[in-house]
């Protein structure tokens, strides 16, 4: 289901068209939530909203992976963060939040 808000840091410095968005991975085995920044266009992964450090070595080839567990960020245990999760990660001041009124095309 589409979330009511689109949360992003900025437009992607790598591809220019994507949005650097907050992705969270819920590691069920260890019971913890990991946040990272993922471009929704070129799939570049950064460890935090400063976009200073990319995460390049995942466990699944050809797919963006979680910097913590290394699993694919497109698996069902990962999702775009909502506002409470962004607050929990301490990144609220680093993101821009757009309300998605009639914005069904923004997933």
């Amino acid at each position: 289901m589409a979330k009511p808000f689109l949360i992003y840091v900025k437009q992607c410095p790598v591809c220019g068209d994507g949005l650097c968005r907050v992705r969270v991975c819920h590691d069920l085995q260890r019971g913890r939530l990991t946040g990272c920044i993922l471009c929704d266009e070129c799939e570049t992964v950064w460890t935090d909203p400063t976009l200073k450090q990319k995460f390049l070595r995942g466990k699944v080839e050809g797919t963006p992976c979680c910097p913590d567990c290394g699993q694919s960020l497109w698996e069902p245990n990962s999702h775009w963060a909502d506002i409470p999760e962004v607050c929990l990660l301490g990144w609220y001041d680093s993101v821009q939040i757009v309300r998605k009124e009639n914005r069904d095309q923004i997933v």
């Binding site: 689109l6 992003y8 437009q11 068209d17 949005l19 929704d40 799939e43 050809g62 797919t63 497109w74 821009q96 757009v98 998605k100 009639n102 914005r103 095309q105 923004i106 997933v107």
Partner: peptide, 23 residues
Amino acid sequence: GSEEGHRLSHIARHLEDQPDRPG
């Protein structure tokens, strides 16, 4: 691959405008 499940589905996003998408 990609959020859409296939690269072809992903690039299909660029066949239409998303007027409310930031940037």
